[in-house]
């Protein structure tokens, strides 16, 4: 039985990782807490649901969802965020607006009701794990999380583009002085954040449901994961996802109402004691000016 719960926790963790990795990277390079991520998540969720309902396979639908969200994010970055380049407060407020607009737009087009995600075949079946049925779909979640993690690491560690991104995360000024054009890099990472959020949206449908409030419902969890992992750190996001996923599965197994409360409390404690997160390096502390 515990094996089943632990496996469920790991699958949740994989989902949280996909959900949060983009937000973490975007914060790393742009310094923007990207509320709009919840909007791209929602766009991906509905795009995948729509395609599944029209006869597409799950993987194709999920990849297309990521692409659509990525394009949405790219447009938003170009039209709304770029003009506010030197105004982090304005960018933060704008991303909140984008989240509200996308949520409302989805509500308008598809209606407020919960939609049924059409799942059939292997993905709708279960396997016995620890004496209880375990959905095969959750194994797909674990595989997706793993693949995305490896792809991100390969991109960041193995390519020259990744080197530039890491340089930008480390110090924007130094990167610019070394001849890296940071502006297109920001657009690129922002679009990547959109793709990851959209893909996460597609993954969410089959186990979380398809409804307009899904974006804002998962927003808090995203924040918890990136804060605990450390904003800007992919490895930290992975570790934090595992902690939060397992905590949610285990606490939720014994006291379903407390799972989220415990995680929020963990986030508050980490923010107070170690604002840079477990593996992050960006200092979140205020410079204190003693009187």
């Amino acid at each position: 039985m515990i094996a089943n719960v632990v496996l469920a926790g790991i699958s949740l963790a994989a989902f949280y990782f996909v959900l949060s990795a983009g937000l973490s990277l975007v914060f790393g390079i742009m310094g923007v807490l990207n509320f709009a991520s919840a909007g791209y998540f929602l766009v991906g969720l509905y795009a995948a649901w729509y395609m599944l309902g029209h006869g597409s396979g799950f993987l194709v639908a999920a990849l297309a969802a990521g692409l659509i969200s990525g394009v949405t994010a790219l447009i938003v970055e170009f039209v709304m965020l770029r003009p506010l380049y030197r105004n982090p407060g304005g960018q933060l407020l704008t991303t909140l607006g984008v989240m509200l607009i996308l949520t409302e737009a989805v509500n308008w087009v598809f209606g407020p009701q919960i939609q049924q995600e059409p799942m059939q075949g292997l993905l709708a079946s279960t396997l016995p794990v620890g004496g209880l049925p375990f959905p095969v779909y959750r194994l797909l979640l674990i595989a997706s999380g793993l693949v995305i993690y490896l792809l991100l690491v390969a991109l960041l560690r193995g390519t020259s583009l990744g080197l530039k991104v890491r340089a930008g995360v480390e110090s924007q000024t130094l990167a610019e002085l070394s001849g890296i054009r940071v502006l297109p890099l920001r657009s690129l990472v922002y679009a990547l954040g959109g793709i990851l959020a959209g893909f996460a949206g597609a993954l969410y449908g089959p186990f979380g449901g398809v409804y307009p409030g899904a974006g804002t419902d998962t927003l808090l969890l995203t924040f918890i994961v990136v804060v605990i992992g450390g904003l800007g750190s992919v490895g930290g996001t992975l570790v934090a996802s595992l902690i939060i996923g397992l905590a949610e599965a285990l606490v939720g197994f014994y006291a379903p109402n407390l799972a989220l409360t415990v995680n929020v409390l963990a986030m508050i404690i980490v923010l107070i004691l170690r604002p840079q997160g477990l593996l992050g390096r960006a200092p979140g502390r205020r410079d204190t000016h003693a009187a």
Partner: peptide, 25 residues
């Protein structure tokens, strides 16, 4: 206020959500 910028925004968000969850439960 030990935190600044986005971190301050997030801790205020987290504390409020925590209180909201407590009130609900």
């Amino acid at each position: 206020l030990r935190l600044r910028g986005a971190y301050f925004a997030m801790i205020t968000f987290a504390i409020a959500e925590f209180a909201y969850l407590l009130v609900q439960n």
